[in-house]
């Protein structure tokens, strides 16, 4: 409770400070700066860089101040300090990262732990897309197949992949294959639905235009329907990647001998809170990087997105 109040107080202070500063130095110009109505005009709202930097700094500051960190001069009173077993200071996590990066953890190097998780995600996603995209196309192009697969896809979609873990363990044990199959199932329905809506989203006038220009069915599929569905497929791929990343970590919490999720699970059993924190931060950074990479890929491959 006290922590929340401190956080809000810091937020308010910095906000007031930046607001005051920006009235002093109004050097910015251009349309946005001349707008008199900004409250309610979404296009006039830009995330303030200063606020983003300050936000991260405040989180670290509070973390450091309450854990007796040697990285800060500000310290919370002694009886408010956290014990390292609950929350170690940031430098412990940092040095633990350097340590594990150099010496590894539980028979495997840090890179092996992370890369196996990433590899699982990409393999599972790859097969999910490989089956899911053609499945979605079939559902988008044929009434019988739409009717046949609709109940299956619509039923499987809301089932969280985590709920499948017990069944997958019963069927396939805890080896690599089991995890790939789980991730395959996590990606499959998302990709199928994305491809289906990509096909459904093609404007009838484009289809008509292609036919009256002499295109065959196959040419229509290749030159109109497929490129038209690409933006939707990319959106689906981004969602599927996110879900797969979440699922792999959870699956590794349950059963694995290496991986990002395995690392934090084992560390928590031995109360190595610094390793747990390190793992969570790395998992977050990797998940975010995957999303950024997908977005860059999307901008490069489907520059026409949203411009129809």
């Amino acid at each position: 409770m006290t922590l929340l109040l401190i956080y809000i107080a810091l937020l308010a202070t910095i906000w007031a400070l930046t607001a005051w500063l920006s009235t002093r130095i109004r050097s910015r110009d251009g349309m946005a700066a001349r707008k008199t109505v900004t409250f309610g005009d979404e296009s006039a709202i830009r995330p303030s860089r200063v606020a983003s930097v300050a936000s991260v700094a405040v989180v670290f500051l509070i973390w450091a101040a309450f854990t007796g960190s040697s990285w800060t001069f500000i310290h919370a009173p002694a009886d408010w300090q956290m014990r390292p077993i609950w929350l170690p200071p940031p430098e412990n996590v940092w040095f633990r990262l350097l340590d594990i990066a150099a010496n590894g953890y539980r028979n495997f190097t840090l890179w092996e732990h992370l890369s196996i998780s990433i590899w699982r995600v990409f393999t599972g996603f790859f097969f999910g897309a490989l089956i899911g995209i053609p499945l979605g196309f079939a559902m988008g192009l044929n009434s019988f197949l739409r009717g046949w697969f609709d109940p299956i896809v619509e039923f499987m979609r809301p089932v969280p992949p985590l709920a499948l873990i017990p069944l997958v363990i019963i069927w396939y044990g805890i080896d690599e294959k089991a995890k790939i199959i789980l991730l395959f199932l996590a990606a499959l329905w998302i990709m199928a639905i994305a491809a289906r809506s990509g096909v459904a989203g093609v404007k009838l006038s484009k289809v008509h235009a292609a036919y009256s220009l002499g295109a065959s069915k196959w040419q229509l599929l290749r030159h109109v329907i497929m490129p038209n569905a690409l933006p939707d497929i990319f959106t689906g791929a981004r969602v599927a990647m996110g879900v797969c990343w979440g699922t792999v970590v959870a699956a590794e919490l349950v059963a694995a001998e290496k991986g990002a999720g395995f690392t934090i699970m084992v560390a928590s059993r031995f109360m190595q809170t610094d390793i747990v924190l390190m793992g969570i931060i790395l998992i977050g950074v990797i998940g975010y990087s995957i999303d950024v990479a997908m977005r860059m890929l999307e901008r490069w491959l489907v520059p026409w997105k949203g411009r129809g």
Partner: peptide
């Protein structure tokens, strides 16, 4: 292909 069609808008292939 004997009868070409020009639509109101949005029938071009933006890719």
């Amino acid at each position: 292909r004997a009868r070409g069609m020009v639509f109101q808008q949005g029938a071009l292939f933006e890719w």
